[in-house]
């Protein structure tokens, strides 16, 4: 396969960026999208050029490090992470546009790399449980009804990649935050911080400069882990409950 890539190149946060065009040849359909970029970078290094910077880590679709908006879709045309996207999803002669996540709360570092530490700060605001440390507790000590366990697990699948923010026309982090809140607020282990968690995480989300939800639904379409849009509804419900209970603190 021979492909034309149009890639966002930007030296650093302060520099001006632009789309640059590259040709890659000998791309196999079995390559992952990141392997295809590795090939491009090898060529660029041999030519003495600056390789394209992009985030990646496990390349197994479980860590949430990879990103990339490919032809306008966060993580590209398949519903998976970029590392699990394979070149068989493209055709010989295609032109592929590759851009970084775009959001004010995700400042650009270089080329396709953005700083997603705003997510870490949302987690620090309440994405944890107060659990005693030490030996693992007996599994049956805290019973969890099966539907609750399933619901919590569905939301626990979030890998924090930020595709929801990248896809959202408002650069909102509602789906990410709601996944974390629904996950922990459904389980008995998360109950002690049920109210403070949702109030603090939503407040932090606003403070970090993420947009609000207009229920466009793009986040849930882009999510490689299939976090549903109703997750946001669940967070709104929890937020209203906590606000009533806490009287606004």
């Amino acid at each position: 396969m021979k492909l034309t890539l149009r890639i966002w190149r930007q030296r650093n946060a302060d520099a001006d960026g632009a789309m640059s065009t590259y040709e890659v040849d000998g791309v196999s359909a079995d390559m992952s999208f990141l392997e295809m970029l590795d090939t491009l970078n090898e060529d660029l290094i041999l030519q003495g050029e600056d390789p394209v910077a992009f985030d990646h880590d496990c390349r197994e679709g479980i860590c949430g490090a990879c990103s990339l908006v490919i032809n306008g879709d966060a993580h590209g045309p398949e519903r998976t992470t970029t590392c699990q996207l394979h070149m068989r999803s493209f055709h010989d002669g295609d032109t592929i546009d590759i851009e970084p996540w775009r959001a004010a709360a995700f400042p650009l570092v270089k080329d396709l790399v953005v700083d997603r530490s705003a997510f870490d700060r949302i987690i620090q605001a309440g994405g944890y449980v107060t659990a005693p440390t030490g030996a693992a507790p007996e599994a049956h000590a805290t019973p969890v009804p099966k539907p609750d366990a399933d619901f919590a697990f569905e939301h626990a699948e979030c890998i924090g990649c930020g595709a929801c923010v990248a896809a959202c026309p408002n650069g909102a982090a509602m789906l990410f935050t709601s996944a974390k809140i629904n996950h922990l607020n459904t389980l008995p282990q998360g109950a002690p911080e049920r109210e403070t968690r949702v109030l603090d995480m939503v407040a932090k989300m606003d403070e970090e400069g993420f947009g609000g939800c207009t229920l466009a639904g793009e986040c849930a379409t882009a999510c490689p882990k299939g976090i549903p849009l109703v997750s946001i509804t669940g967070m709104n419900k929890e937020w209203l409950r906590a606000t009533r209970k806490a009287g606004g603190r």
Partner: peptide, 8 residues
Amino acid sequence: ARPDKYVH
């Protein structure tokens, strides 16, 4: 929250 638009 979304100052830069996507090219594509």
